[in-house]
Design a protein around this nucleic acid. Structure first.
Lengths: 342, 342
DNA sequence: CTGAAAGCGCTTACAG
DNA sequence: CTGAAAGCGCTTACAG
């Protein structure tokens, strides 16, 4: 039976077909659990996501799941909601479920030793979006580059006072993004007030707070770089509540290019690294560790995607300089312009 | 060993502790797969979701997963992207994984016989959001009631020409929502033009199309009921592109009350049935079928939540009548008013 | 009350 | 080449 299912060449094709038909008639269902037990390997992959309320991670999850499904793997999903305690539970559960590998976007505050511990379990691990050291397979984004790109764009629009909303302390990705911003400001010899790097939660609520803070500042920024699109959506919302218009009263740039960024009002300028591509890379990296005889002790595979800037209306009204290429709001429906590294 | 883990009373507490400690030292990991094989029952639940790009289903998924996790179950997640073929694959895979139960929001166009087939597998099934007959456990929403409530609200604001965007043919939930709208219009003796029930995709793109259709109509509606918030977001976006304002130029009402509905510009009036509550109910319904000696042949448990209308700015500007209770846009940050059944 | 043995449904190494 | 047997890690019914 097993041989038939494995399409073993020692079974003639017609016999195999007969067996399969009989199996179907009898209502036979292959038991993957038993196979995993005996064969000492499983075909389920654990996926640990920190925040499903952020659509970017959902897009990433969908992309990862699709590639894994195509490769014949089943996805065991868990959501930690940024709780390290939940993450610990979830990882234990996945280990007990005997997952063949793990893809994880670690919760904020995860202990640096966790990747090493998971390695000691003998379970291959791929980190997505949030790096934790050089010796773990990681798929992420070049955040410093992206935020430098976004800062350049705002400066090119004539902005000199630019804020950064979402500077969570002790969080690596926030530091990278802030560094991209600060180094570019420095390069252009633009002074940066301390209060311009605003520490708020990385949610729409955080964005709302950031706007209120900005409009209370003595030396008020004319543009704001947001940690991600979730924060930017809160910024847009609060601007609207104050009767102000993004792009005109305050230029706004987000990060992640979630699907909704195209449908905000006004549409949101944002950095895109491609959730599809990142998801596919993460899956493939893990799958490459799962093939027979894979080098698990080899050097870690790390890839950091270079984001592009998708320019939409939230950052389009130039300050000081009037640029002839600025189009009137709402003329071309699906237009998007892409800024690339020079 | 097994007895210790089960906290069997025949093992003294101190001995149990010693065993547990030794197990930890040796790096013992409980193998759920083996337990499931031997015990002929598993602790994983399959969850089949039709559309993770709709945040409502993500909120539902998160709610379901939390309750299942608390009950000691692990969630196997799959995404069908509204493809019946993918759904078939996914269900076979879950059956092979020996899931203890299934929670499913079936893809559009799913064969009516599917619930009976799954029952024949001996796997308890709970349907969410999309009913398929009377003899399946189902957690859903009273869509006709909700859309009647929304229609009443628009009529109370002075609207007499109201459109319905998202009338997908042959899709039960769309028909329910349309019926709630049509019956209320009839009750108020308001005529409804055929072209006002607009058949578009149930996405932001569909919403954009609907707006263009509405502004091309000879007898133009002053309000639009959207199939869901995704459609409504497209409507808001297109209105903005046309330089028009939701609530002023066209009243807009959505359905689902996704988190983003509070942050659209302007904030979106929408129907809420509570994804948390629905998710918890779905989980609990399934769990009740999983307890030892549960009546699997008993009557199907069906529950349809009564939605409330969350009134926000997108439908607030009254037409014809000027109502003193209308507040000025953007005055109270988190305000929301709730309309209930009378 | 307790400990040893049978067996869940597979895969694989091995005897014939 | 082929078929029967061992064994993955558990649970549970049963013998002592």
């Amino acid at each position: 039976m097993s041989l038939v299912l494995q399409e073993n060449p020692r079974i003639p094709a017609d016999t195999a077909e007969k067996v399969r038909q009989a199996a179907r008639q009898l209502g036979y269902v292959y038991n993957r659990g038993a196979a995993a037990l005996r064969g000492r390997r499983s075909a389920t992959i654990g996926m640990v996501i920190n925040d499903l309320t952020n659509p970017f991670f959902v897009e990433l999850l969908v992309a990862i799941e699709r590639v894994l499904a195509e490769a014949g793997y089943t996805t065991l999903m868990a959501h930690t909601a940024e709780s390290v305690a939940t993450q610990t539970c979830v990882l234990r559960s996945m280990r007990e479920q005997n997952v063949a590998g793990l893809i994880m976007s670690p919760a904020l505050g995860t202990d640096d030793a966790l990747p090493a511990e998971i390695r000691s379990w003998g379970i291959p691990l791929v980190l997505v979006m949030r790096p934790m050291g050089d010796d773990v397979d990681t798929i992420g984004v070049d955040n410093a580059f992206g935020f430098a790109l976004a800062t350049e764009h705002l400066i090119a629009q004539g902005h000199t006072r630019i804020a950064f909303a979402g500077n969570r302390k002790g969080y690596a990705v926030a530091s990278q993004r802030r560094e991209g911003y600060l180094s570019t400001m420095k390069q252009h010899e633009l002074p940066v007030a301390d209060e311009w790097t605003i520490d708020v939660e990385l949610t729409p609520q955080g964005g709302q707070k950031a706007v209120r803070a900005i409009f209370d500042m003595a030396l008020r920024p004319t543009a704001v770089l947001c940690y991600n699109d979730q924060v930017a959506i809160g910024v847009l919302h609060e601007l609207d509540r104050m009767g102000k218009r993004a792009g005109k009263d305050l230029a706004v740039v987000g990060c992640d290019n979630i699907v909704a960024a195209e449908h905000t009002n006004p549409p949101l300028t944002t950095l895109s690294a491609g959730s599809d591509k990142l998801g596919a890379l993460a899956s493939e990296t893990l799958l490459s560790r799962l093939v027979e005889g894979a080098v698990t002790d080899g050097p870690a595979k790390q890839f950091f995607a270079v984001p592009e800037l998708i320019i939409r209306e939230s950052s389009e009204h130039a300050i000081e300089t009037e640029d002839a290429t600025q189009t009137v709001r709402g003329k071309q429906p699906g237009r998007k312009r892409v800024a690339r590294a020079s």
